[in-house]
Amino acid sequence: MIPYQLLSGIYMGWALGRNDSSNIFGPAIASKSVKVYQAIILCSLFVIIGSILQGAGGFTTIGSVTSLTLATAFITSLAAGLTVTCMNFFKLPASTSQAIIGALIGVAIFRTQKIDFLSLDKVFICWITTPLIAALAAYILYKVIGFMINALPINIFTQDKIIRIGLFCAGCYSAYALGANNVANVTGVFVASSLLEPWLAALIGGISIALGVFSYSKKVMLTVGKRLVAIDPYSAFITVFAVGITVHFFAFVGVPVSTTQAVIGAVLGIGILKGVQTINLKILFLVVFGWIGTPLISMGLALGLTLLAKLVI
């Protein structure tokens, strides 16, 4: 039987799947490279594979922030999940990575526990460098792949085909990277509280993210996809590919990061290359809000939930 505490983790995974899947497969759907049901199945499958094969790396980082009991793990996960849901409701870009770290700090503050600031430093550096690395990756990919496509003797149909296959493959790869990088946000706290073994946590985390992907509405996926494809299909492909590389890179580092901020960085990188201003004050605000606002909201929720739990129990 599943311990009830794990339900908050599954909820968190569901929120993550809903929040992030559009960044990954939206452009492929909008470009008609895949049908919605195919995208959902592929995205879920690759998220689970990524979680199982490479997801364990982030568990150590999540566990190193502070010590956790089963009860605090439950509250942390619930607070982070609620933060993401609330931010989605108010149409604000949410990052599960920042939400879970904020919740961990909140719980640690309430219980006057030691916080490992060395681990947090590493996490903060990764957050800040995420859009920068994504921008650099997009810049290089755009140039290199563009050079190869221009050099090939291809017609309009073949170029179209290359971009559609690219969107399809980049979507699968990014889904894999999402699972590998973000599963620690979902079940990392339960590994830290010794409820789950890392392999089981990766499996459950992957499946719960896949549940979120499955419950995602076609309309939203298309909206996000079309917004990205609106740049132009080649740039959308590069964006998704750069996001996959960035998130995968941080899976090796072992720090969960935000796919939304990676997308913003990648679009900025392409914008710089094309001499187009793709970033404005509003987007800059959203990035900074992701870094500061998300963990603060999550921390506040975690503090409130811990207080509530203390009063009730």
């Binding site: 909008a30 470009s31 008609k32 490279s33 309009i156 149909f157 179209d160 971009i163 559609r164 494809v229 132009d232 299909p233």
Partner: peptide
Amino acid sequence: NKALIPESREDI
């Protein structure tokens, strides 16, 4: 109804 990226479709 079916094929190609919307942008290619529009151009064709």
